[in-house]
Amino acid sequence: MSGRTITRAQLSERVYEEVGLSRNESAELLEMVLDEISTALSEGEAVKISSFGSFSVRQKGERIGRNPKTGEEVPILPRKVLVFRPSQLLKSQINDSAKNGSGQHH
């Protein structure tokens, strides 16, 4: 387990190596992918990426919360939350490498 953080830069570099578009266009394509997913979700559409996982939007009802500092009751407004459900394949990919790899615990 290396524990690094991958960002847009490394992802678009991989796209650049894979397809042979310019670096600029690779970055743009990555942005478009995220943009299409975000737009679909904001329109209430679930997004299913086979062998990776699915994203869906869940509506949460209003509930009473509490300001932990003041103890004051505040209503938490009804809102939408995004839920990611990893595919079986992604789950097993992550567990196989955790077992065979560095054998880390926590």
Binding site: S2, T5, T7, V15, Q93
Partner: peptide, 23 residues
């Protein structure tokens, strides 16, 4: 290929124990 590459790379990063942060 681009779409597959992106999701494969995210999966590979997670399998290595890396985080993927897309601000």
């Amino acid at each position: 290929r681009i779409v597959s590459c992106i999701f494969d790379e995210i999966a590979a990063a997670l399998a290595r124990g890396d985080r993927v942060e897309l601000r």
